[in-house]
Every structure is written in C-alpha cells, then in structure tokens.
C-alpha cells in the first residue's frame, strides 16, 4: 500500500509500487486530465505537479512520490469553477483537439506559481517539454499571458491569497 496525496486528499494505492503515476491517476483514481501521449517523458501530455513542480507522470513511479503533494488539472478547478489558468485557456479558446492542453496547463501553472510575471522567453522555455500537434501554440501563449495577468490581479486584490489552488 502506498499513500499518495492527490489534489489535497490522501489515497491508499494498492498497486505495484513501480507503476508510473499516470496509470494510477487514470485507472485507480479515475482522473482524466493527465494523458498518455508517449510514455517516454518526451511530450508532456501526462504532466502533473509534485510539490508545485511539473513532473512527467508516465515515467515517475508512485513509490517516488510518497509524501509529495500531487496536483492534477482536476485540482486546479472544474468546468463550473475553472482556475485562473483553465479560465484563460477557455477565454482564449486555446485548444483544437485539446489532448495536449492539460499538460500545458500544468507547465503554465508551475511557471506562474514561481514566476508571476514571466517574459515570453520564460514562457516558451517553460512550455518546451510539451508537444502540441494541432498547432495551438499561439493561443496557448496568449492563454498563459492572460492567466499571468489574472493571477497577478487576483493576488493584488487579495493579498496573501494563494494563486491557483
């Protein structure tokens, strides 16, 4: 049994401890946002946050994540109450097939939690691990900039409040 903290809740996982987190999220916890894209750590579709840092869950075994705070896109907000990054992606209509988008949201969230006012170059570097085949990149860039603005404004309006979750 492995205890995993996902989106603020502890889960007892009964699986081979070598199982990459991705399959535990999808099969045991029935979460959909983290996607299988390559299983090789090359595309970013499966990204989640571990203690605020982006991690490719397809090659990260659950045993390594005990005691870490894992957040997935589900933990950032739902369709009815999207978080600031999710809202920015909706507002910019930043998706075509959308398959890659949760991974981008994670990269963006991690970036903006560390760097509230990123430069374009910083955004591009932060998003480099993620692939999008539909070519939604320009909208994704816009969405990240919009999210940065929104998160700064909300922090300014509500000092001490935490951006994101």
């Amino acid at each position: 049994m492995i205890t995993l903290s996902v989106n603020g809740r502890d889960h007892q996982i009964d699986a081979d401890p070598a199982t990459p987190l991705l399959y535990v999220l999808r099969d045991d916890l029935h979460l959909n946002a983290a996607k299988f894209g390559c299983g090789l750590g090359q595309c970013g579709s499966c990204m989640v946050l571990a203690d605020g840092l982006p991690v490719v869950s397809c090659v990260t075994p659950v045993v390594a994540l005990e005691g870490r705070r894992i957040r997935t896109v589900e933990g950032l907000g739902g369709a009815d109450d999207p978080g600031p990054v999710q809202r920015a992606f909706i507002d910019e209509q930043a998706a075509q097939c959308g398959y890659c988008i949760p991974g981008f949201i994670i990269s963006a969230q991690a970036l903006l939690e560390r760097t509230p006012s990123p430069s374009d170059a910083e955004i591009r570097t932060a998003l480099k691990p993620n692939l999008c085949r539909c070519g939604t990149h320009i909208r994704i860039l816009r969405a990240v900039r919009r999210a940065a603005d929104a998160m700064r404004t909300s922090v300014a309006a509500n000092p001490g409040g935490e951006g994101g979750q």
Partner: peptide
C-alpha cells in the same frame, strides 16, 4: 467541448 477538456472531464 473546451471546458471539459481543460478541467479533466471525460
């Protein structure tokens, strides 16, 4: 379809 896709809906 976008809201579900950005929030982890099936």
């Amino acid at each position: 379809d976008i809201p579900a896709k950005v929030t982890g809906g099936p």
